[in-house]
Design a protein around this nucleic acid. Structure first.
Lengths: 184, 184
DNA sequence: AAGGATGTGCCCAAAATTTGGACACACCCT
DNA sequence: AGGGTGTGTCCAAATTTTGGGCACATCCTT
């Protein structure tokens, strides 16, 4: 099955997301934009958060697929921050929503998704335990999350915040510490 | 209903038309391109000629809708030739097909469609009989058709063939003759 | 000239999707 | 307190999509 309706719903939603904050987009707005029945929306998606989650996951997957193979953790961190920067408009709209929880939930998921994928590659042959992998993922993704969060709060004035280099430096040290700790 | 499948079929077909001549496009190619069942094609369209006809009519309508209101017959002729020129790639692909009849059928329909719309406007208050209107439409559209036909045969070397000015001159004379004849 | 491969246009019944209508519930506003 | 709006869910009917099969035509090969 081709699922053209699901695709149309996603397209309408992204279109509306470029016009107004998430909190002001209703199911009615979406179905009216693509000219379908409201029940057809609920046939394809549980609710708007589920729709958003699917779009974010798809976009993340697509972006990751288009990045070249990475060799080192440094590259992974670089790519993850690039990802956050490049998706600033999407993240910004979510952030603009009244519901701060939702912003945190999805931004965090987005960043962690990328960080996880790349740390998996970086740690592949390093003999790191699953627990330590999780710890590294938490440390790196939380750092990046905090960075983006502050950046949005400041109005995203700089194209790429100066802090990013400092945070990246910190992030770069984390996996080495983890690997050393694992081997001792 | 939104009919996303019909839209997808049209998009796939136009995409394939940009890759190979009409005669080599099968229903199978189309349904494979948009990932649907072959029977779904036949649910929406009778056959490929019907699909082509619908696309051409839609495109012609859309292009005409985007043209400004015309005041004189001269403008109408101008717009009709512009239309043929601007759609040269679509016309060219149909022409490339082995089936010359099909090319003639659709090119002729396309050109006559535009000429008819505009001659209707031009003749609006001129008191011309329906029979004379038809005659004018035939004369003008056949002239333009022959022009485009020759142009394609010559390989469309010139951006706009030199003949077009001469043919336009001839066309410009026709409605005046028709109107005079009607009033005598 | 027979056979295979490919494509067409059509048929059917089952499966999947879309629709319109309804409902209880929550929220905001005044 | 009540009107307006939006949510999430249910249902049955209508529409659309699918997979299978069919006879027929065409092209190509042997």
């Amino acid at each position: 099955m081709a699922n053209f309706t699901g695709k149309a719903i996603k397209e309408s939603f992204v279109k509306l997301l470029n016009e107004k904050p998430l909190a002001r987009i209703s199911v009615k707005d979406i179905v009216e934009d693509c000219g379908i029945n409201r029940n057809s929306f609920y046939y394809h998606f549980q609710d708007i958060p589920a729709l958003l989650e699917e779009i974010i996951t798809e976009q993340a997957d697509e972006l990751i697929a288009n990045y070249p193979e990475i060799e080192s953790l440094e590259e992974g961190i670089e790519v993850a921050t690039d990802f956050a920067i490049k998706n600033k408009m999407a993240v910004f709209h979510i952030y603009n929503s009244v519901n701060r929880d939702m912003y945190e939930k999805y931004t965090m998921r987005l960043i962690r998704h990328v960080v996880t994928r790349y740390l998996e590659v970086a740690f592949k042959d390093a003999g790191v335990s699953p627990e330590d992998k999780d710890l590294a993922i938490k440390l790196v993704s939380c750092s990046l999350f905090g960075l983006v969060y502050d950046w949005l709060d400041s109005g995203m004035n700089e194209e790429r915040p100066a802090d990013i280099h400092r945070v990246c430096e910190l992030c770069r040290g984390i996996p080495e510490i983890i690997i050393e700790r694992s081997n001792s």
